[in-house]
Write a protein that binds this DNA or RNA. Structure first.
Lengths: 249, 249
DNA sequence: TGTACATCAGTGAACGCGCGTTCACTGATGTAC
DNA sequence: TGTACATCAGTGAACGCGCGTTCACTGATGTAC
């Protein structure tokens, strides 16, 4: 581990050291980019190190300088995908005025769908059938939670700022164990939200991803095939469902 | 094509002819059963004719007497899975009194989840990421629609029998193209239902499968991990959401 | 600034494996007279 | 009922292919004095 703070290393020495390191970083992301391209053609399960190497014009064994195994490459792709989706959701939320909680909800849901449609194979990588035999390591957990975190923040702020207008009295009592689980979710993601609201948010969450998966995985053929209007309409209904107020500030 | 009506074929001749045919039918389903077992271990993409043959103690080439190619075997498995799931949904619905539409809804949703949990890999085969390069033939369409048909029937009968209590005035107008799509769905599956109810049913439909997929594909880790209560609660909320009356007859 | 050494990237051959599909064949089962 | 022929199930070898991973190696880049 070379300490970056060593005063004796001159500027040019630093630059030349980063030359190697930069080459490494560049090739690392070229490998990932090529692997992503292969996802499109063959899916995660058939991701082949040899094919990636071939396409990059290098020996297949060279890949092992960058990823110790096929599964590690897969993990890197999964983390990148979660991060890209999380980034898209966060950016969409950020672009709307804080007080317009419904607008933020609509924008976030739209961004998730937009990202998924733009890179369906990366979406499938994280929300489709898990690759058999592959065990996601702990590093994927935090990136995976980013979208949920955005949604949680919106609801928490809506609740804090506009609680009077959000439906405080859930007519259907939340069963005890679900209430416990919901409280844990609230603690992690949306402090202060009651279990009933969290439960509804979980319903909306599963609905959002269910709808997107159906659209991408061709289950809408013959029903709501161009799904744009269905999506827009549904997202409004779900905003009502979780109790978001109708208008902005 | 030997005509079954030929009077000259004696009973015993018929029986011996079916002896061969029965052997064929039996091996066909043994192949499918073994293939299903392989799904569990390796997923649809890695389904291997050679492995199936090996496990059955026969030459790999012998499989070709039963299925002309790997994709045809896959298609057979997909159709069987849709049929089994449809059967489960229909049986659950059938077991409840016709007038208890909410009970039928709950039972049907529960049966879908139960079937999915009992054979997660067959569920993944039909509702997970599509196998890249595989094109589902037309024969899968009808079996795939069976669950939707059950749900449609329940709603149509609820509407016909109890229309006054189902929410007739949707506060949110259905956009024009979605209304058209919904009417087509209604024609096929739930005659008489207005577009607003169909739209909500589509939301509930995507929610149901989204929730099940999340449960099976490990997205609930750390949130609603034993998902039983969440599922039961959600199905009630969704029954409310589509406008089903609270009590039985 | 120049030299000696250590680190790292990339090579190419090899190991041992599995796959889908085809083909000419043997032997059993079914059919027609 | 018995014989001649046609159909079908199953075999085993082969074709041509791709895979992940290891290993000893060459040569370039970086580092310490």
């Amino acid at each position: 581990m070379s300490s970056p703070g060593t005063a004796t290393t001159s500027g040019s020495a630093k630059a030349s050291r980063t030359a190697r390191e930069r080459a490494r970083a560049e090739l690392t992301s070229e490998i990932k980019a090529e692997a992503r391209r292969q996802l499109v053609m063959h899916g995660a399960q058939q991701l082949s190190l040899r094919a990636v190497a071939r396409e990059l014009g290098m020996a297949s064994s060279a890949i092992y300088r960058y990823f110790p195994s096929r599964d590690d490459l897969l993990t890197a792709l999964i983390i990148d995908a979660y991060d890209a989706l999380g980034e898209a959701a966060e950016a969409a939320d950020r672009a709307i005025g804080r007080a317009d909680v419904r607008g933020r909800w609509l924008a976030t849901c739209g961004a998730v769908r937009g990202w998924a449609i733009a890179q369906p194979h990366e979406y499938a990588l994280i929300y489709g059938t898990p690759v058999p035999g592959y065990q996601a390591p702990q590093d994927t957990v935090a990136p995976a939670a980013r979208v949920a975190f955005v949604i949680g923040s919106i609801l928490a702020e809506a609740w804090a700022g506009d609680a009077a207008r959000m439906n405080r009295s859930e007519p259907r009592p939340v069963p005890p164990m679900l209430a416990e689980q919901a409280d844990l979710v609230a603690d992690a993601i949306a402090p202060g939200l009651p279990a009933a609201v969290i439960s509804r948010a979980l319903v909306a969450w599963t609905q959002l991803f269910g709808m997107i998966s159906f659209e991408l995985f061709d289950q809408f053929k013959g029903t709501v095939d161009p799904a744009d209007e269905f999506f827009a309409y549904t997202v409004e209904l779900m905003a009502d469902f979780v109790g978001l107020p109708s208008a902005g500030p």
